[in-house]
Amino acid sequence: MSFKYSLNLQIPFENSKQSAIAQGSLAPDPILKPNEISVIYSINSKNPNILEVKFSGDSDRVIRVAANNVIENLKTIIECMDEFDGKKNIIFIQE
């Protein structure tokens, strides 16, 4: 199905591992109205540090709802990476 409206997000990360983790975390999220919008996650072919998200929809409204939702999830993923990535593993022992 071809849609008239589209929005492509380009999100740069520090390295290709982070962009792949973000893609793998977002991709399983099901599309609620596949007849109205499609969302495609990919890694930029020239720069693997960049995650690309392509929204194609039949109105600005569905694009806005989907893009806002994906960005919200993306911010949570980035926050998790920022908090935990690169840190030493810690084993918590229950006393």
Partner: peptide
Amino acid sequence: SKLGQLRAVLTTLQDDINTFLT
């Protein structure tokens, strides 16, 4: 951190997109 700054700038981009589409 770079990721911390990315999260803040991404919020600005989210605002810009939301405002434009609204």
